[in-house]
Nucleic acid binder design. Structure first.
Length: 578
DNA sequence: TAGTAGTGACTAACATTTGCCCACAAATG
């Protein structure tokens, strides 16, 4: 059984318990366990084999025993028993916006409705409006919500899709008279790899004008709710957008609240209570009575709590609050610190620009070094290079390097295929001729864990391979990527000094945040590369930086901050030390 | 249910807005 299945079962159990009306803390225990396993980054089977299940936050003896049962038998008796009482199809009904556990229970008990289909029929027949607490309006709203669910689902979109939309909306709201500040909040500000909805915040004294403009933006399909301080809309693409407007003197608490995460907020508010304040999005209020303490900046919010400022990228309740209290937060990598990009393509394979044009574009962006890394021949669909063409290309790269002089170093590399059988496209003597070797998986990503892990570890152990490109091969938001044993991959990289890539393309973000953090903890070096196929894709590096930040990475962890001579020295040492 | 203190009992997840019905459920971070 995989992590994902354990997570799903625990989440389903939590939903079933909620519908049944169980005690809140029991429900929370299952949710917390599911979240912890989701953020684990390691195969739960391995953690179990090590006897370390109860080391996972929120897993005690009872849940450890349940995990053991699932891993050993593939089933959970408690879940099966619960399913006989609360049909799992009722859990599906919770996905309908506007339906929570109480309503689902009520509808199930009174009308014997068990599925979304039956719910639709009941609503069409006008049976819902007679239930206490519901009316004709709720009935119509539920029908619309069911329709929306079947049209868009409740899928998340990738960061790269949400970010430009949010920027555009923000720009338009900023133009409204009276707007002092406007910002993105939520998971988008935290730069999670996928986004469930967009959260926007505005500082203004009179919200009405802002709300009007917001509701009238051209990509807005419908207004789902509107009050004096809060409006939420659905975009044409199905994405939800929330807008919150407060006066500027409350900006710090507002921004902090609306950035989240929820778990981070709850922890902060608990901390506030311990220090004698109630904290909400408006202000700190002394429990003993007295006037509010307003925070115009987030720095002031954290200071009031006795914490150093915490970057939005870290706000997941993954230890950042404790680190801020102890003053041990890392000095996170920034985009400005990147001076090289080690992975890009040209017309020699599937890129759109010549070597010279790519190098110039990189130079114009202020980079000090680039590595030209076109595909190798077994990736035929991308016009991969043969040995002969690779050698021809080397001459052109050297010429471009000379032509551009001291402004930028242009190095020759390759993005070489790791073939399905684990062999590499180029022999060692050819690899020795190029400056930087990236090895990547593009095919047969569905191989069994053992096999694909060995395939990647084999490449890591080749002394000529310097970087592993987009290690898992995932594509957001839907393709999961290779089922790698990340413990084994990181161990091999740590041992050999191999560099793992954080591919900055927002459709990849691979390595992902939790694996970046594991790599940083184990001293594995990382590279933030754009994998650009066009000039404008060189600007994607900030997504990679955000991912690195979410993994608590600092400049020393990221080889793109190093002077290029140091990097060349580093990869040459790898060959020598073999 | 987890965690803690202590081997069975107790505590623990914050604070809001909105809609719709007329007090509460749902949704938000």
């Amino acid at each position: 059984m995989k992590n994902r299945e354990v997570v799903d079962i625990f989440n389903n159990v939590a939903d079933m318990l909620a519908i049944r009306g169980d005690q809140i803390h029991r429900i929370l225990a299952y949710r917390k366990a599911a979240e912890s396993i989701e953020a684990l980054g390691r195969d739960i089977n391995i953690v179990y084999a090590e006897g370390k299940l109860t080391d996972i936050p929120g897993i005690g003896e009872t849940l450890a025993a349940k995990i053991e049962e699932m891993l050993k038998t593939g089933r959970l008796e408690f879940y099966d028993k619960l399913a006989r009482e609360i049909p799992p199809s009722l859990v599906e009904m919770l996905r309908v916006e506007g339906l929570g556990p109480k309503r689902v229970k009520q509808i199930h008990e009174v009308l014997k409705v068990e599925t979304i289909e039956q719910l639709t029929a009941a609503a069409r027949e006008g049976k819902l409006r007679d239930l206490p607490g519901l009316g004709a309006k709720s009935e119509a709203k539920l029908l619309a919500a069911i329709e929306a669910l079947s049209r868009h689902g409740d899928a998340r979109v990738s960061l790269g899709v949400a970010w430009p939309i949010a920027r555009q909306m923000l720009a338009e709201l900023s133009e409204v008279p009276g707007v002092v500040r406007a910002a993105v909040g939520g998971s988008l500000r935290r730069m999670r790899d996928t986004i469930g909805d967009i959260d926007l915040l505005v500082a203004a004294d009179s919200p009405e004008a802002v709300m009007d403009r917001f509701a009238a933006l051209e990509n807005v399909e419908s207004v789902a709710g509107r009050g004096p301080t809060k409006t939420n809309v659905i975009l044409l693409n199905g994405l939800g957008v929330d807008l919150r407007v407060l006066p500027v003197e409350r900006w710090g608490t507002l921004l902090n609240y609306f950035t989240g995460s929820k778990a981070h907020n709850v922890k902060l508010r608990e901390l506030a209570l311990k220090r004698g304040y109630s904290l909400n999005e408006h202000a700190f209020t002394p429990l003993a009575g007295g006037s509010e303490i307003l925070c115009a900046t987030e720095e002031a919010v954290y200071e009031q709590l006795g914490l150093t400022y915490i970057s939005p990228r870290l706000r997941e309740d993954h230890g950042e609050i404790e680190a801020a209290a102890a003053g041990t937060l890392p000095n996170l990598i920034t985009t400005e610190e990147l001076i090289s990009d080690l992975h890009m393509h040209t017309t020699w394979s599937d890129g759109t620009l010549s070597i010279l044009d790519m190098a110039r574009a990189a130079r114009d962006r202020g980079l000090k070094a680039v590595v030209i890394t076109d595909h190798s021949y077994s990736l035929g669909i991308a016009n991969g290079l043969s040995i002969e063409r690779l050698r021809e290309q080397a001459a052109e790269v050297r010429a471009v390097d000379r032509e551009l002089g001291s402004d930028i170093r242009v190095l020759h590399g390759t993005e070489m295929e790791i073939r399905a059988d684990g062999s590499l496209d180029f022999p060692d003597e050819v690899l020795a001729e190029v400056d930087i070797v990236i090895a990547s998986l593009h095919t047969a990503l569905g191989q069994p864990k053992e096999q694909i892990t060995q395939r990647l570890v084999g490449a890591i152990r080749n002394p000529h391979v310097d970087i592993i490109g987009h290690p898992t091969g995932r594509l957001l938001p839907d393709r999961a990527g290779a089922d790698l044993d990340m413990d084994a991959v990181l161990a091999a990289a740590a041992e050999t000094g191999s560099i793992l890539e954080i591919n900055a393309n927002p459709a990849r973000l691979d390595l992902r945040d939790i694996h970046v953090r594991m790599a940083v903890e184990r001293g594995v070096k990382l590279a933030i590369n754009t994998d650009a196929h066009r000039a404008d894709e060189l600007s994607l590096s900030h997504y990679g930086v955000a991912t690195a930040q979410r993994g608590w990475a600092t400049a020393v962890d990221i080889v793109n901050t190093w002077p290029v001579e140091d990097l060349i020295q580093y990869v040459q040492n790898k060959v020598k030390s073999d």
